[in-house]
Deep mutational scan, measured.
Amino acid sequence: NQASVVANQLIPINTALALVMMRSEVVTPVGIPAEDIPRLVSMQVNRAVPLGTTLMPDMVKGYA
C-alpha cells in the first residue's frame, strides 16, 4: 500500500512545512504520496491541519 503524508503536529494556516511536521503512514483515503515529502518542505498550507490529518493536494499552496 502507498504511504501518504500525515501531519505530525497541528500545522497552523499559512505555515511553511518542515520535515518535523510530517510523517508517512498508510491511510485511507490516500493523500499526497510520502515520496513527495522533500518537495513539500517550505510550501505553505492554506488551512489549519490538525495532528494526524492526511495532507491532500488542495491543502498545500502550489502543490497541485
Rank of each mutant, 00 (worst) to 15 (best):
A3P: 09
Y63D: 03
T15L: 04
A16G: 07
E35V: 09
I37C: 05
G62A: 09
L51D: 13
P33E: 04
T53C: 07
P50I: 06
A7H: 02
V60M: 04
V45W: 00
A16Y: 13
I37K: 05
M56S: 06
V49M: 05
I13E: 13
M22P: 01
V49N: 02
D58C: 15
P50G: 12
T15E: 07
D58P: 07
V30E: 15
V45H: 00
A7C: 04
N14H: 14
V49I: 15
A16K: 10
A16S: 10
V41D: 03
A48I: 13
Q9R: 15
S42Y: 11
I13T: 11
M21T: 03
A18W: 04
Q2S: 14
P57M: 06
M21D: 07
N8M: 09
R39S: 09
R39H: 08
P50D: 09
G31E: 01
S4N: 01
R47N: 07
I11A: 02
N1C: 06
M59Y: 09
Q44S: 12
P38F: 10
V27S: 04
Q2R: 04
D58Y: 13
T54S: 04
A18M: 12
A34E: 14
I11R: 01
Q9E: 11
P12I: 05
A18Q: 15
K61P: 09
M59W: 07
T28H: 10
A48M: 08
N46H: 09
L19Y: 11
N14Y: 15
A34T: 07
N14I: 03
P12V: 06
M59P: 02
V45E: 02
T28N: 10
T53Q: 13
P38W: 07
S24H: 13
M43C: 07
D58Q: 10
A18I: 10
V30Q: 10
M22E: 03
V30M: 13
M59L: 05
P29K: 05
I11Q: 01
L10I: 09
A64R: 13
R23T: 07
E35L: 10
N1P: 15
I11F: 01
V20Q: 14
S4M: 02
Q9C: 06
L19M: 14
A16V: 14
P57Q: 09
Q2C: 12
V20P: 14
V27Y: 02
V41N: 04
G31K: 02
T53V: 08
Q44M: 15
Q9T: 13
A7L: 03
P57V: 08
M21N: 07
Q2I: 12
G52D: 09
L51S: 14
G62R: 08
A34V: 09
P50C: 12
A3Y: 09
M21W: 04
G31D: 02
